[in-house]
Nucleic acid binder design. Structure first.
Lengths: 341, 341
DNA sequence: CATGTATACTAGCTCGTGCTAGTAAGAATT
DNA sequence: AATTCTTACTAGCACGAGCTAGTATACATG
């Protein structure tokens, strides 16, 4: 490892002079002659010097490292992380990962954030209890926390997410625009925050169109990864009894299951039934037929969360928590069509 | 921030004594009385001390941080990273991310690895040129590099991946076991290493069964994300002209496209056509019908890459590059069935 | 009583960097 | 010629930690 001392020896000056040269404009008041400056720079290049960010951090009392704490399971998480990475890059920050997937406790993550002197934390977590713990422990150490995508709005922690209510409304407005009136709503039994907000969008759009949503048109299925008998029974029963002409599904996997059920029953999508999903996950474009869905700006969310967090870090003092809701976008594919007369 | 000095003051001993107490058994020869030890420990707990890993790293001349360099695009990458994270956790290492997705150059990543004194690098990259550059630059700085999943086997850089040849063989053996003989092979036009190895598995299984694979049964489609006319034409033509009873697709997205094509043509899967995919991506279980596929152990790959890298780091001297091929697993769902007589 | 030997602790150097105060030499001013 | 001022650089402390050598006390042994 090449240090400033090595450069100093090579250039015939002291380590301190090397420091002054390499830190350039930052250190005001100390003048270095152009000749010396050039000689030092030349030696630094020649020896392949790169500064030791760790030693620098010890001295500065802070790092330019942000920690990401999340589950590490989902594919959209990767896209969000990519956005965070891009956002941090622009500010000269780097990213550390703490995934809570394999026996990694939140306590460990918090401890390591402190040990590594991270400048801030971005987390994606559905667990409110843990979030409060995280936030309390870290703000106590002066480490700001920011939630991204999956999070809970509160007045003590910033949050960047996409506008789920608007997304639900857009989806239903799309169906209304195609002439549908008997529009169903499909959610998972364990209603998370998303489902609730997207459902709100559904209700808002229906009401705005002068339609009072029929409660019977709402259906929920248990949360199961596969495609099980129970789900088949519920969805078939729903389609046969309620006969919706279109269904807004609050998540893509649900929409795909509805497609499977319709396929089983010989109900043609989009001819006899229009289906809208939510999230634009990988498989949405591969379903039969390719799914019309609401695309969330995962990368943008990550990028914005990163930028906001860096703002807080670089900002002067106490800050008001950021609360950003990014717009979503309809992706119209082949699972929705004009209502047949 | 609480330092050892603070604890020393609080406990009425010197900073050095605190260091001895907290470093426990590691520092041999220096005896601390149980009374003092307990008092120091108590104060450390009370003040909420956690050691500064950065300062420790400066002194030790190394960190316990591994860098991940990858694309940051795909969902299976997230699973691999989760595995890496789990593997590192077991060894007391932590993970830094450098995603090359948004204007982040490999040079930047390399520079930052040096600046941050990372102990090793795990990368996932298809780009051989860059890999050589990465490997050269980093091993020069004494930082070992390990490839995971997407990588090139070579004698100068370790690689952990799954056994693609065996995977291809297993998929085809599964179809042979169902009575199929006229088994097609679907790949993407831009043949990557995977496609090649999985195809090798196909040929090996066919040959072992005494069948000479008909070259006309192999079909390739252009690499397009969506579901375009060109692909529809190629796949329909293939199915109608060659009439395979089963097709092994070297990747899940290809398999899903074949399902779409079959659906268009009214060919029933699995009654008239069995389809096997590869990778067990999210959408494989959501296709119509749910896809039989070869599951890659992404998490295990990550975990093993992490463990191997830590071995190299902790090992005494020069090492022979690890080359691990992990077994894959057939996931049998509903897209394959016995050949109709 | 002198010497040896555990025990219990601290002084002081080190890692690589950042910053302030200080010094030496030459130029400009009085 | 004595003084200030500017330029160009270095000494020295600091950050938080690790480690070795050294010291002071208590106790056992000759």
């Amino acid at each position: 490892m090449v240090t400033m001392k090595d450069i100093g020896i090579a250039a015939g000056v002291s380590r301190q002079t090397v420091s002054q040269v390499l830190n350039g404009q930052r250190a005001g008041g100390v003048h270095i002659s152009p000749v010396t400056r050039e000689r030092v720079m030349e030696k630094a290049r020649h020896l392949g010097y790169h500064r030791n960010e760790l030693a620098r951090a010890v001295k500065r009392g802070r790092t330019d490292v942000i920690a990401y704490i999340g589950g590490g399971y989902t594919s959209f998480e990767m896209r969000t992380i990519a956005g965070i990475n891009a956002g941090l890059k622009e500010c000269g920050f780097t990213l550390k990962m703490f995934l809570l997937n394999a026996g990694n406790s939140l306590d460990d993550a918090i401890r390591q954030c402190r040990e590594q002197m991270v400048a801030g934390v971005i987390c994606m977590s559905q667990h409110l209890d843990n979030l409060e713990q995280l936030h309390r422990s870290l703000t106590l150490s002066g480490i700001p926390v920011m939630q991204v995508d999956e999070g809970v709005q509160c007045d003590w922690c910033g949050l960047v997410r996409s506008d789920d209510v608007a997304g639900g409304r857009m989806a239903v407005e799309h169906l209304l625009g195609l002439g549908h009136r008997r529009i169903g709503l499909l959610a998972a039994e364990c209603d998370n925050r998303y489902a609730v907000m997207r459902s709100q969008g559904y209700h808002a759009a229906m009401t705005a169109a002068g339609i009072t949503p029929d409660p019977a048109l709402k259906v929920t299925v248990p949360v199961i990864t596969g495609w099980e008998e129970q789900q088949k029974r519920i969805l078939s029963g729903y389609l046969l009894e309620q006969r919706p002409t279109a269904v807004f599904c609050v998540a893509d996997p649900l929409a795909v299951k509805l497609l499977l059920a319709a396929n089983m029953l010989g109900i043609k999508v989009p001819d006899d039934l229009s289906v809208v999903g939510y999230a634009d996950l990988d498989f949405a474009s591969f379903s039969i037929p390719p799914l019309t869905t609401v695309a969330q700006p995962f990368e943008e969310e990550g990028r914005n969360a990163a930028a906001s967090l860096v703002n807080i870090i670089n900002g002067p003092g106490p800050h008001t928590p950021v609360n950003l809701e990014l717009p979503v976008k309809m992706i119209i594919r082949d699972s929705t069509a004009l209502l047949k007369k």
